[in-house]
Simulated assay, not measured.
Amino acid sequence: MSKKILLALTSNADLGDTGRKTGFYVPEAAHPYRVFRDAGFAVDFVSVKGGAPPQDGLKDDDPVQREFLDAEGERLKSTPSAGEVDAREYDAVFYVGGHGTMWDLPDSRELARLAAEIYERGGVVAAVCHGPAGLVNVKLSDGSYLVAGKRVSSFTDEEEAAVGLDGVVPFLLQRRLQERGAKWEGGEKFTEYAVADDRLVTGQNPASAEKTARLVVEALA
């Protein structure tokens, strides 16, 4: 039976109080999706609130993104909410980034429960860019934070400042992961960097999405 991977998406469309829109970052879903499908995995979607999660960052000249939306556009109109998904069906969960994640992923108890259950059943938990926002409050059954003591990457505080949103996001992701006990690490800003540590796989930014997905495939092998 093929492995099943759950792509977790934000339901938040508002970039704080800037009046600008955000959502899940389409390239960070599309490129991992292709890696997973090429590896023979089945892919499902979940979002915080269910329904059609907001999209951001679509580049029409990227055939991988167009192919992804052509293939999955209908399913993306009606994703289940985190509370409607059975963790026992999945071998991995992959938190897709996008700035929207910063406002709703940390507070989704249902998504945190899904991740903890998948991990404690021997599965893989993964996230890229701002996706690790979904990891900051995930606790295991012994009460410890999932990220504590593990090598973890994410969108960096330097990158957040470079895009001018360090004063907009509700917290700085790198710093919060470090506060949770993660052994945070990253590379030069906006370059590929991903790390796997004990079935926890994380990537730094959009450029790292494909590598993060490849590390998930390796971890599931």
Rank of each mutant, 00 (worst) to 15 (best):
L135Q: 06
R121C: 07
H130P: 13
A161R: 15
R151G: 01
V124Q: 00
G164E: 14
N137P: 04
K139M: 14
T156S: 15
E160I: 01
E120P: 03
K139L: 13
E160G: 09
L140D: 05
N137E: 14
D166T: 02
V128Y: 00
V163R: 11
G149W: 09
T156W: 03
G123E: 10
G167D: 10
L165P: 02
V138I: 13
G149C: 08
V124K: 00
A162I: 12
C129W: 02
D142M: 08
V124S: 02
L146F: 09
G122A: 04
E160M: 15
R121H: 08
A162R: 08
S141I: 06
R151Q: 08
G131P: 04
V147T: 13
A126M: 02
K139R: 15
G131S: 08
G167Q: 02
G167C: 02
N137T: 08
K150G: 10
A161N: 05
H130E: 12
C129H: 06
G167H: 06
G134R: 06
E120R: 05
A133P: 08
E120N: 04
L140N: 03
V125A: 07
Y145M: 13
Y145P: 07
D142A: 10
H130V: 00
G143Y: 05
V147S: 10
L135E: 04
G134Q: 08
G167N: 10
E159Y: 06
V136D: 12
G167P: 02
S141D: 06
C129M: 03
G123R: 06
A162M: 13
E120S: 03
S144I: 15
P132D: 11
E159G: 01
F155Y: 15
Y145C: 01
L146V: 01
G149H: 12
G149F: 11
G134N: 03
K139C: 12
L140T: 05
N137Q: 07
V152E: 01
D142F: 04
V124H: 01
H130K: 02
